[in-house]
Design a protein around this nucleic acid. Structure first.
Lengths: 130, 130
DNA sequence: GAACCCTATCAACGTCATTGTCAAGATGCT
DNA sequence: AGCATCTTGACAATGACGTTGATAGGGTTC
């Protein structure tokens, strides 16, 4: 289930230690499994312009660690905060315009709210699990 | 249809010229008509914590000019940008936290996009008009 | 007393988010 | 070659969301 060849051993230890978080590594099935989301969902995120995974010369998506991080942000904003994709996109744009790490501030807030009161009363679709 | 008494003549010209934008003036039916929204919608906005109109001693909502301005912001973000109420709430919170006029920047952007490309692909409910 | 406000509830209607499938074709690995 | 996975595109099911609308019972304003 892995298309093992995509796991490039040279990725590790080539720079002495660290792994380049921008390096495109994960095929969509792997990425989807890591972030616990359906591959279809990741394709939608890309259609909406929320993520932009690189492609191989043969047009296959490859996700980097930063891509995964971004996906997890999307999941947090949509699932935990009930924000829809248009709102997420706006927040991303805003963060880029301002050059500030807005999102982290939001995350800290929601971490501090351990009293677990609903963020905006209503929630976004978290059904559709079958 | 007006509950005319709520229109306080003393509001005008009491300070020499300007009208206090914070002064609670409009009853919900009037406010709703001004911003072209159903009263039910305004009550929902209040339930969601997006607006906070003052109340008379007898518990009747009174909206100020600033309240109306805020409502128009909500309408812009939801109708033109497709952001849901949770997203709007987050943006408001963020603006308050940062002390910056984020929203105006967004509005300028959308004004500059005269090419009329859809903000996030999909749109929020703009149906339900009957 | 007529017209409006309050809260609360129920509902219709269309859109949104997510998951899922199916098709037909290209790619990667063994 | 053959199998698994990828690609795009379409279609659908499910539940939640946004908005408008109606109704009921009770208070407020004039």
């Amino acid at each position: 289930m892995t298309l093992i060849g995509f796991y490039d051993p040279f990725m590790y230890g080539s720079g002495g230690k660290g792994v380049d978080p921008e390096r495109p590594v994960y095929v969509i099935s792997v990425a989807a499994e890591i972030v616990a989301v359906h591959p279809r969902t990741l394709r939608i995120y890309e259609e909406e312009g929320l993520i932009c995974p690189r492609r191989t010369s043969t047009n296959i998506r490859l996700f980097s660690e930063n891509d995964l991080r971004r996906i997890l942000w999307i999941r947090h904003l949509t699932q935990d905060r009930g924000i829809n994709l248009a709102g997420v996109k706006t927040l991303f744009e805003l963060e880029e315009r301002l050059g500030t790490r807005i999102l982290e501030r939001l995350y800290e807030e929601s971490r501090n709210d351990e009293t677990e009161k609903r963020p905006a009363g209503r929630r976004v679709a978290e059904g559709a699990r079958r």
